[in-house]
Computed example of a mutant assay.
Amino acid sequence: MPTYTLKDAEALLGIPRSVATRLVSEGIITPTRGPRRALLFTFQDMVLLRTANSLHDAKIPTRLIVRALARVKASRGAGQPLTGVRIRAMGNEVATRDEGREGWQAVSGQMLMDFEPGDPGAAMVQSLHDARPPAADAQDWFLIGAELETEKPIDAEAAYRRALAAEPTFLDPYLNLGCMMCDARRFGDAAELYRSGISQLPSEPLLHFNLAVALEDQERPGEALTSYERCIQLAPDFADAHFNAAHIYETLGNGMRAIRHFNEYRKLQR
């Protein structure tokens, strides 16, 4: 299994040494020791360090990052990895979502009803890019759906579907509706929607990427990997696709391919 030094973590992820070492000293991450007692991180550790760095970039104080991740770790129980939890910054707080739970504030445990997809770990991608201007009716229904997402998700879904009926090649409704479905844990519905989108827009890398994320949430890593690889074929500079593919390859025990994709991610981050 490949390992990474603290210097690697700083270079690849951009995480400040002070944040990484604080996570180690607090027991959030437990790396092994190499020659001269150098810290050696696993790929799972690197995923968590990447999440911590995203929170740091969002101006979350280090002490709050540590407290939040410590509480999440305690809630998972012994032996349960933190990489299964979706973690993101929400304003000046750290919000999480775990299996079987709604969004909750990591430090206080308070429920967050407006938790949205798009966390730093395995984030769903939302985009306002479209290959060409959609029909007027489709655009109108899309805007209605966007306005209704928070308060009336059922009506929002109906509006997005009306937009797609009017313009099947309109990218944005696929992305927004798919993210809504995944946020509601309707991963199978999301995957079906993304496949429908791919049938209309086969060369759109965002659809392949989001399909891969939905398949990962269904615990179908092999199929997810195929979609990540297709995304990378279409967009070789899609950094998150390389990172997520590396994570799956590492989990499946294919260290060589994991390293190859992680090196591509590193080059793109530079």
Score class of each variant (00 low, 15 high):
residue 46 M to H: 11
residue 47 V to Y: 03
residue 48 L to A: 06
residue 50 R to E: 07
residue 50 R to G: 10
residue 51 T to Q: 09
residue 51 T to L: 13
residue 53 N to T: 08
residue 54 S to F: 08
residue 55 L to C: 02
residue 56 H to L: 09
residue 56 H to I: 04
residue 56 H to T: 09
residue 56 H to A: 14
residue 56 H to E: 13
residue 57 D to Y: 07
residue 57 D to I: 12
residue 58 A to E: 02
residue 59 K to Y: 10
residue 60 I to N: 03
residue 61 P to K: 07
residue 61 P to G: 08
residue 64 L to M: 12
residue 64 L to T: 14
residue 65 I to T: 10
residue 66 V to R: 06
residue 66 V to Y: 07
residue 67 R to D: 15
residue 67 R to K: 12
residue 67 R to Q: 15
residue 67 R to H: 10
residue 70 A to W: 00
residue 70 A to N: 03
residue 73 K to C: 02
residue 74 A to M: 08
residue 75 S to L: 08
residue 75 S to G: 06
residue 76 R to L: 15
residue 79 G to H: 02
residue 81 P to V: 09
residue 81 P to D: 07
residue 83 T to D: 15
residue 84 G to T: 14
residue 85 V to Y: 03
residue 85 V to C: 05
residue 86 R to I: 05
residue 87 I to T: 05
residue 87 I to Q: 01
residue 87 I to F: 01
residue 87 I to W: 02
residue 90 M to V: 13
residue 91 G to E: 08
residue 91 G to F: 04
residue 91 G to A: 06
residue 92 N to R: 15
residue 93 E to Y: 06
residue 93 E to N: 09
residue 93 E to A: 12
residue 95 A to G: 07
residue 96 T to H: 03
residue 96 T to C: 15
residue 97 R to C: 09
residue 97 R to I: 14
residue 97 R to V: 14
residue 98 D to A: 15
residue 98 D to Y: 07
residue 99 E to A: 14
residue 100 G to Y: 06
residue 100 G to F: 04
residue 101 R to D: 08
residue 102 E to V: 10
residue 102 E to F: 10
residue 103 G to L: 08
residue 103 G to V: 01
residue 104 W to L: 00
residue 105 Q to N: 15
residue 105 Q to A: 11
residue 106 A to D: 06
residue 106 A to V: 03
residue 106 A to Y: 05
residue 106 A to H: 06
residue 107 V to L: 08
residue 107 V to H: 09
residue 108 S to T: 15
residue 109 G to F: 02
residue 111 M to C: 03
residue 112 L to Y: 05
residue 112 L to E: 07
residue 112 L to W: 06
residue 112 L to C: 04
residue 113 M to S: 14
residue 113 M to C: 07
residue 113 M to R: 15
residue 114 D to I: 04
residue 115 F to V: 09
residue 115 F to Q: 11
residue 115 F to E: 11
residue 119 D to N: 04
residue 121 G to N: 13
residue 122 A to D: 14
residue 123 A to F: 05
residue 125 V to M: 13
residue 125 V to T: 11
residue 126 Q to M: 13
residue 127 S to Y: 01
residue 127 S to D: 01
residue 128 L to C: 04
residue 129 H to R: 14
residue 130 D to F: 09
residue 130 D to C: 05
residue 131 A to Q: 12
residue 132 R to D: 00
residue 135 A to P: 00
residue 135 A to L: 13
residue 135 A to R: 15
residue 136 A to C: 04
residue 137 D to N: 10
residue 139 Q to H: 07
residue 139 Q to A: 14
residue 139 Q to E: 13
residue 140 D to E: 12
residue 141 W to S: 05
residue 141 W to G: 00
residue 144 I to T: 13
residue 145 G to M: 02
residue 146 A to D: 12
residue 147 E to L: 10
residue 147 E to S: 12
residue 148 L to P: 04
residue 149 E to L: 11
residue 150 T to E: 15
residue 151 E to I: 06
residue 152 K to Q: 13
residue 152 K to L: 11
residue 153 P to I: 07
residue 153 P to N: 05
residue 155 D to F: 12
residue 155 D to R: 13
residue 158 A to M: 06
residue 159 A to V: 06
residue 160 Y to G: 00
residue 160 Y to M: 02
residue 161 R to G: 02
residue 162 R to N: 12
residue 164 L to S: 02
residue 164 L to V: 04
residue 164 L to P: 01
residue 164 L to Q: 01
residue 165 A to C: 01
residue 166 A to V: 03
residue 166 A to S: 13
residue 167 E to N: 15
residue 167 E to I: 00
residue 168 P to I: 05
residue 168 P to D: 01
residue 168 P to K: 00
